[in-house]
Nucleic acid binder design. Structure first.
Lengths: 224, 224
DNA sequence: ACTCACCATAATAATTATGTTATAATTGAC
DNA sequence: GTCAATTATAACATAATTATTATGGTGAGT
């Protein structure tokens, strides 16, 4: 589920937005102060940040800049500061949108949906799970910082597992995905053997089998 | 250079926006009718589409939907239709933003810059050059539609060349990039040999040598 | 406890990948 | 044209990959 951090000190407004976005299917993490927001941002993975600018314990723009120092997460300001110069300044901190109060909750929702459509596209191709880091682009896998050399097949298998973490993947679908069209003549047991090899190379217990159904990655996967 | 298609029938407005965005460093392709815009869109690569909705020969929303059928390019509506329902409808066609007239050119520029920051992130990891198509994610290379099996090393070499198309890459930098830290004990000639293998497998003349300097990909590379 | 289907993994063998060496071809300076 | 430097490619040998086979283990149903 996609996660949204909302930094807004007006409790009613914060609750109202949260309610609507939860209905829309998002997980909402509300914050009422910059301190709270920073705490959440540093300890949780979020896909979108919505932030007010005038806040009791600091400035939303500073928070936005702090966010940009650490991540490329989508960032929207939601504020009463509606002068052109304010808006341009807002974008200059690296924001993706700037909404001025008063605003329509339905339009905010539409905007959020639009950004979320982009979220999955902007992932940088680095999959993280526990101490395992897979760089799709570099074709490299690291465990606790050290490089684990994997073959092309093993890498593709691992990526398929990670991209569908928590989902049981049947041997057939794995064959389809990893061995592709040419895999029609490949033995069913090949999957088993490669899974086994992957497990021994990664020395992980995140690859689980569900008897009769298939395999899955049990760890929590995030993306960088 | 990033390219913007502007569909706006008001000539003064179109010229004004184009001028500003060109100053900002973008290549602008102006269209005054849906027909023109479709023609440009089908024949040129664009990174962002800005479209009016009320147009002499059609509806901008239909154009937007047509765009979304073919691509995930960033799409912004710029229109006088400012009712909530209009805006929500606009987003529902798959748009990324909806700006209502009258608007500030400076803010539009900020928005465009914000989207362009995202453009490079949203590329799907598919490199195209002539009839050669490289899917970084799938680790597959196709030439004229047929799969060319490449080894991991060859693939990385090809990607490095494509990502720096037009730039001469020294053997040293290629060694650094493809063979990495472990490449310190690898022979200089290894690069030459792998270039040779790549050329013979791809049967392309896009890999050129510049005597004494290095290699480069001479074809034009686009991304999907 | 027995059985059978399913899974894990070790061993195997064929294939593929890949760095090196050797040799030929090319280029540009003189 | 000659020569030296550079590049191209063929040939080779080693290492890695990988589908298969074989064998042992595990778990659920009876």
């Amino acid at each position: 589920m996609k996660r949204i951090l909302i930094l807004e000190d007006d409790e009613n407004l914060n609750r109202g937005i949260s309610l609507k976005l939860r209905k829309e299917g998002y997980e909402v993490l509300p914050a009422y102060t910059v301190r709270e927001a920073k705490d959440i941002f540093e300890n949780e993975h979020v896909d979108l940040v919505i932030s007010d600018i005038t806040l009791p314990d600091g400035n939303g723009l500073d928070f936005g800049r702090a966010v940009r120092e650490k991540s490329n997460v989508f960032l929207i300001y939601l504020t009463a500061m509606d002068q052109e110069i304010d808006i341009v300044n807002g974008y200059d901190t690296g924001a993706d949108d700037y909404i001025t109060k008063p605003f329509s909750v339905n339009i905010l929702t539409s905007k959020v949906n639009a950004f979320m459509r982009r979220v999955s596209e902007t992932e940088e191709g680095v999959l993280l799970s526990g101490d395992i880091e897979v760089s799709v682009k570099k074709m490299q896998v690291k465990k606790a910082g050290t490089l684990i050399p994997l073959s092309k097949t093993e890498l593709q298998l691992l990526i398929y597992l990670l991209e569908n973490a928590g989902c049981i993947l049947s041997k057939e679908s794995i064959l389809d995905k990893v061995w592709g069209v040419d895999g029609q003549f490949v033995d069913d047991n090949t999957v088993t053997v490669n899974i086994s090899r992957l497990k021994s190379k990664l020395r992980t217990d995140c690859i689980a089998n569900v008897r009769g159904l298939g395999y899955l990655w049990t760890g929590k996967v995030t993306r960088k």
